[in-house]
């Protein structure tokens, strides 16, 4: 079962040289139900990525609370926060951020090395299985030689390795061609459903957003609209 999210009164502003602080986010309330697939969209510079970072504890808001399954991330010390993220969050980036020196298999297993010195064999088989299911046939080819579609599939497998209760994706299809965007979008949503994770996607991709349970529109740092239940579950 994925975690539910309740974020309230999130404010984030950056100090600006010689002027008043720049307001990035001012968000009254954001709720995501357990195992829901939620989208956040909005124009560039509307604070989508900052919101995603705040929701995953990567960035601390100036004020407000981010509760996942009742745990307020803003109240956790850095070490606890790191452990919470390691246990609960799978991250997918627009630009994949794979480590080119590692094979696809080693890239998928990387999060396992944060907690283990020797990766347990069941995790290896899970990684292999994920890569098979997501369509990366060659697990040991140089990562740099993969196609972009394959790279994002590897990144997705990496995010799913530890069966996180929350998966977050930052523009996961924006660096892909139409066919791959379609396929990766489908894999992302269906994989999260398969492991019952809560999914939060920041995206402009209408096709991807249409696969989600709900979409929130962010405008100048505030949520302006929530589309209810866009897709049938």
């Amino acid at each position: 079962m994925g975690l539910d999210l309740e974020a309230s009164d999130i404010r984030l502003s950056y100090p600006a040289a010689g002027g008043p602080p720049v307001r990035v986010l001012d968000l009254a309330r954001l709720r995501v139900r357990p195992s829901e697939a939620a989208g956040i969209t909005g124009p560039s510079g509307s604070g989508k990525t900052s919101l995603l970072y705040i929701l995953t504890g990567i960035e601390r808001p100036c004020s407000g609370a981010v509760r996942w399954g009742g745990v307020d991330l803003t109240g956790l010390r850095q070490g606890r926060l790191d452990r919470w993220r390691q246990r609960n969050v799978g991250f997918v980036f627009q630009d994949f951020h794979l480590f080119p020196g590692l094979s696809p298999m080693a890239n998928v297993l990387l999060p396992a090395t944060f907690g283990h010195f020797i990766v347990p064999s069941w995790m290896r088989s899970r990684a292999a299985e994920l890569l098979d299911r997501l369509g990366v046939p060659d697990r040991s080819a140089p990562t740099a030689l993969l196609s972009r579609g394959e790279m994002q599939r590897v990144a997705l497998a990496r995010a799913l390795l530890l069966t996180p209760q929350v998966v977050v994706a930052d523009e996961p299809t924006a660096s892909l061609d139409a066919d791959n965007a379609e396929a990766v979008g489908e894999l992302l949503v269906s994989s999260c459903r398969a492991i019952d994770s809560t999914l939060i996607v920041v995206s402009h991709d209408a096709a991807l957003l249409s696969r989600l349970d709900s979409v929130h529109r962010l405008q100048q740092g505030s949520l302006t609209l929530r589309f209810a239940e866009t897709a049938a579950r």
Binding site: I58, G79, D82, R85, Q86, F91, H97, T113, F114, L162
Partner: peptide
């Protein structure tokens, strides 16, 4: 810096 940020986002503790 980017690589370090990615590692942390993926859950790498500071000690790592």
């Amino acid at each position: 810096r980017r690589q370090i940020g990615v590692l942390r986002a993926l859950g790498a503790p500071r000690a790592y």
